[in-house]
Design a protein around this nucleic acid. Structure first.
Length: 606
RNA sequence: CAGGGUGUAGCUCAGUUUGGUAGAGCGUGUGGUUUGGGUCCACAAGGCCGCAGGUUCAAAUCCUGUCACCCUGACCA
């Protein structure tokens, strides 16, 4: 007769697995494909194996970590009032055509034909599917707000998968979508957005991650309508900036820059002199060739208005953005300051209009009709400048704003000074006078976003409100890269010997090593301890392989389970075992067998 | 997509320049030895040399094509 178990239990019993009952193929060397630490260590420790570019097996240890993260995500999402469901990964292609995301995603959208020749997509994300579902499933404002999530495999045909699990073509993601009749007030988008912000903070805190929530590029609603959750880690792909005084943090695309004084009135430093600068591919080379430091060069980028001058009289056709040579133009900030949507100008069109691409100077504002000039505050200064000569293969020295651009500088319709570049370390904080921004690197593991009505409008999700008028539903979306979180954790927490898991997402809490598994006394002690630990809710990996001590210790460090119990002859004679945290060096302390469960519990929960 | 690189044993790599029977270390198996931080010794198994053409008496090696994977950049709701 099978043992019956209560359906409902208030306590969770831990599991004890023996190394040889599971699959943990550790290796001394990593495959030469693996370069970043998380990829190397997750492979060497037997958590993942690569199947193809950006496609991985999750082996038993890897899946256990994934499941730990997923269950923390579930608990916090459920606690925040969200509700789980599951959508298909395979979808009819027309869904994406309806919202034109087939174009927006382009080649990143996996397409495949079925036997009837119909085109399908493997979903990169599920706005269309859930919106379609809601159209049929929700018919009254009284059913809203709703926040629905899933944890599911996503597909993106990345141009370049890389860095192991950090940029995959197939990956595990939690995506949530919320639906509202209003932005403000009870039941509004902002309420859920804030709840998600708190839930994400709880999730990543509980996962034991060192992270920063940063403001990201705003959605259609504006304001701080998007936040990214970044694991702080020097090897991260993304740059984040923080104000040390106020806690303001933003990604590099979004980060505002505090007040910078500017002055276009400085006296000329010399005659405007042309310099022949052929075949110099970049600004660094130009500076070197001219003998001018890059921060004394002016870089002028040509943007094209997407509105066009014919639509609205007075709207510019071309937008010039001028920054110092060592700075980077920020397209979003250009749009804001220009007041019109813009794109980087297609080179051929810009040339046809009279711009000497690669050699454009601010003077082009006077030469090409329909052009406005945006000057970054750091570029709007007196003193020596070098810049393009507005003809091929020529630059100029001793450029002077007032002399060489002239009175148009005083025309606010044509020339604006402001912030059009990416923030860099040391820029003034936008939130505290006298404070300077500091930079850090991060790995994006979560992103929350106020979608607005983009999808509901495109797909026709509208509902009668209490005034009996039809209203387009307002949406938010909230993503967490679950598999990426596992990798980001390893990037953040490892040493030369292997991974160091936070207890909350470790594959097991305790690694129990038998020095002499052939010794019955040690086997009995291991069984007893494992039984006591699991009864206390602790998950245990028992390494009773007939290997030498060194092999087992090395593997234990590599796998990175946070606490290790070693059963050896000497201590066992005194009724004791050794206990050691993975993050500590040395052999650890000798603990009486009767105290070991208490020690483990205290360490794991502490 | 552009530039660069690599495909040879389960893993790391040599061999390719100069064509002539497929190599090492690690790992695996067996026997012995050792036993608290990847012991030592012996023996053994294990290869469509990415794939397809071509040149040649003969191709891992030369030529052509192709595929895969990695790196840098572009791209990345």
């Amino acid at each position: 007769m099978p043992e019956t178990k209560p359906v409902v239990s208030s306590s969770r019993r831990g599991v004890a697995h023996r190394w040889n009952q599971t699959l943990i193929p550790t290796t001394r060397e990593a495959p030469n494909d693996a370069e970043v630490p998380s990829h190397v260590l997750l492979h060497r420790a037997g958590f993942i194996r690569q199947v193809g570019a950006g496609i991985y097996d999750y082996l038993p240890l890897g899946l256990r970590v994934i499941n730990r993260i997923a269950s923390i995500v579930r608990e916090e999402m459920d606690a925040a009032g969200a509700c789980e469901m599951l959508m298909p990964a395979l979808e009819p292609f027309e869904l994406f055509e309806g919202t034109r995301r087939d174009e927006a995603y382009g080649d990143n959208l996996f397409r495949l034909k079925d036997r009837k020749g119909r085109l399908n997509a493997l979903a990169p994300t599920h706005e269309e599917v859930i919106t379609q579902l809601m159209i049929g499933a929700v018919s009254s404002y009284s059913q809203l707000p709703l926040n629905i999530y899933q944890i599911q495999t996503k597909f993106r045909d990345e141009a370049r998968p890389r860095a192991g699990l950090l940029r995959c073509r197939e990956f595990l993601m939690k995506d949530a979508y919320s639906f509202h009749m209003s932005v403000e007030g009870p039941g509004g988008l902002n309420e859920t957005y804030d709840a998600m912000y708190r839930a994400y903070t709880n999730i990543f805190t509980r996962c034991g991650l060192d992270f920063t929530a940063v403001e990201a590029e705003s959605g259609p609603i504006g304001g701080s309508a998007s936040h990214e959750f970044m694991v702080n880690c020097a090897s991260g792909e993304d740059t984040i900036l923080k104000c040390p005084a106020t806690g303001y943090a933003a990604n590099v695309e979004k980060c505002e820059i505090g007040h910078r004084p500017h002055d276009l009135g400085g006296a000329p430093t010399g005659e405007l002199t042309e310099v022949h600068t052929p075949n110099l591919p970049g600004i660094d080379e130009v500076g070197k060739f001219m003998g001018v430091k890059v921060p004394r060069l002016l870089k002028t980028i040509v943007f094209k208005s997407l509105v066009g001058s014919s639509a609205l009289p007075g709207t510019p056709t071309w937008v010039l953005a001028v920054v110092r040579g060592d700075h980077e133009v920020n397209e979003g900030k250009v749009k804001t300051l220009a007041g019109v949507p813009v794109n980087m100008a297609p080179e051929a069109e810009a040339r046809a209009a009279g711009f000497a691409i690669g050699y454009v100077s601010p003077r082009a504002v006077n030469a090409v009709p329909g052009t406005i000039l945006l000057i970054d505050a750091d570029a709007a200064q007196g003193g020596f400048w070098a810049t393009g000569a507005d003809k091929p293969d020529q630059h100029v020295k001793h450029f002077n704003w007032k002399r060489d651009v002239g009175e148009v500088l005083g025309n606010p319709d044509k020339v604006r000074i402001g912030d059009v570049r990416n923030a860099v370390e040391g820029d003034p904080s936008p939130r505290a006078d006298g404070q300077k921004l500091v930079t850090g690197r991060g790995i994006e593991v979560g992103h929350i976003f106020k979608l607005g009505t983009k999808y509901s409008e495109a797909m026709g999700l509208s509902i009668l409100n209490s005034q009996q008028t039809k209203q387009v539903v307002i949406m938010g979306c909230y993503g967490i890269g679950v598999s990426r979180t596992m990798a980001a954790c390893v990037e953040m927490s490892h040493d030369d010997n292997g991974i160091i898991w936070p207890a909350a997402i470790a594959p097991y809490h305790v690694h129990l090593t038998l020095m002499k598994p052939e010794d019955d006394k040690q086997q009995r002690a291991a069984a007893t301890i494992a039984d006591q630990l699991t009864a206390a809710g602790i998950d245990v990996l028992i390494d009773d392989r007939p290997e030498r001590a060194g092999v087992k210790f090395k593997d234990a460090d590599l796998v990175g389970i946070p606490f290790r119990i070693t059963i050896g002859e000497k201590a066992l004679e005194q009724g004791a075992v050794e206990f050691k945290a993975r993050r500590d060096s040395g052999k650890g302390e000798v603990v009486a067998q009767t105290d070991i469960v208490r020690s483990c519990l205290a360490s794991i929960n502490g």
